[in-house]
Design a protein around this nucleic acid. Structure first.
Lengths: 224, 224
DNA sequence: TCTTTTTCAGACAGTCCTGACGGATTTGTT
DNA sequence: AACAAATCCGTCAGGACTGTCTGAAAAAGA
């Protein structure tokens, strides 16, 4: 039984759609834990990582601190779980956005917009908070780095699938991906508020042209 | 006299080269204050803004907390003064780098490298710390925003001077400047450690080509 | 030399956060 | 119904940080 509880807790971090399979009261536990994690992430976004206290998280989750500390015995555990949760959430949103890209449509533009949406999403701010604080917090970096690496890998794999014509020019593909990432990250950080403006619109157009330019010519280019 | 002290303190924040003009013992005071501010900035870089405590700053400056609180009556004042100090320091370093660019040399490359040096400098991490924490700390943002704006303005003015041939294409110039800033900021953040690698080198080359491309043709282009 | 001002150091109270504990309530099982 | 376990809550001591206070040392002026 204690074994099942542990398993249950693992499940939450990886998936959160399957609540029917287990008929226990554990559902409530899982729901509570999810509430806590979402509250934690919301705190990262709204008050910053540094000022996120266990009191604040519990309050926001509609829970007492004691109750929260029952599910997550220490603050570090909450943070770790929240990072995993955030990571899967970002990845899921990203996959969804990518899956919506049809081969018939303008793939470059779609991928660009998908990444841009990714980066202007509030969750990205949470990630930035963690990343910046991770620079001076080795313990945090240790949790964060794998997540970041997994996200990057997923992204490049997806890109390779989406643009098979780039297969023979890995250097060009890497350049394009780096360019995309750097520009959008830099833009997201400088825009502070996620609102698009004249700078971001112009830069997105410009960037789109450059990516098109970097892309090898496809033999049958019906989309362009 | 108390009036002079105040004036003296102002002077430090704006300039710190002129210690000969005032023959007072105030020099020691100025030196101490400078030590404090440099210690504060070093703390931002090394342990992050959030974990920077007055105790840590004083310790690092080789001072007692009481002594420090004599010069800066509260932590907020230290932070404010440190930001001003950091700002002038970055600006000075930047001006120096720009001034070294000769019309005869490759101006695009030089300007690019100057900005890149700017962004890989430790002081940039301090700025990032402040910027990110400013997102959720209005009081900090209030101090930071003017400094950032001044820096940007200085940078664009310098660029306008340096590249007069861009006068008739303000949109192109803005695009180029935005591109430069976004790419390098994004790169600096993703590289965490300031070390250049294959990604940064490749991107710098690519970026240089794009900037050249954006630049209007100069009638007498001896430098190219 | 004596006085005044400035600079520096240590000690103090007040506040906040964390983690631990004991008890109450709810849920699942027999 | 009765018992066991899980879930939840309030309180506590310990530690850290900030800001204020008092007093000593050093420098300037008379």
């Amino acid at each position: 039984m204690a074994l099942m509880r542990r398993a249950r807790r693992r499940d939450l971090n990886l998936e959160n759609g399957q609540s029917a399979s287990m008929g226990w009261q554990a559902q409530k536990s899982a729901a509570t834990q999810r509430r806590v994690l979402e509250a934690a992430i919301a705190c990262f976004v709204e008050v910053g990582y540094a000022r996120t206290t266990t009191t604040l998280i519990a309050e926001r989750a509609g829970l007492s601190r004691g109750a929260m500390l029952h599910h997550f015995p220490s603050k570090a555990e909450v943070v770790k779980a929240a990072i995993d949760y955030l990571h899967t959430k970002r990845l899921r949103a990203f996959r969804k956005a990518i899956a919506a890209i049809q081969p018939g449509n303008d793939q470059v533009r779609s991928a660009l917009r998908a990444y841009w949406a990714q980066v202007t999403h509030p969750l990205f701010f949470a990630f930035v908070e963690l990343k910046v604080n991770g620079r001076t917090d080795p313990e945090l970096a240790e949790i964060l780095d794998p997540a970041q690496a997994a996200f990057d890998e997923e992204w490049t794999d997806t890109a390779r699938e989406l643009f098979p014509e780039w297969r023979d020019d890995p250097n060009g593909l890497e350049t394009a991906l780096d360019l995309l990432q750097y520009v959008l990250d830099g833009m997201a950080l400088n825009l502070a508020d996620g609102r698009p403006n004249v700078h971001s619109d112009r830069m997105l157009d410009y960037l789109e042209s450059r990516l098109r330019e970097l892309r090898p010519l496809v033999s049958t280019r019906a989309a362009e």
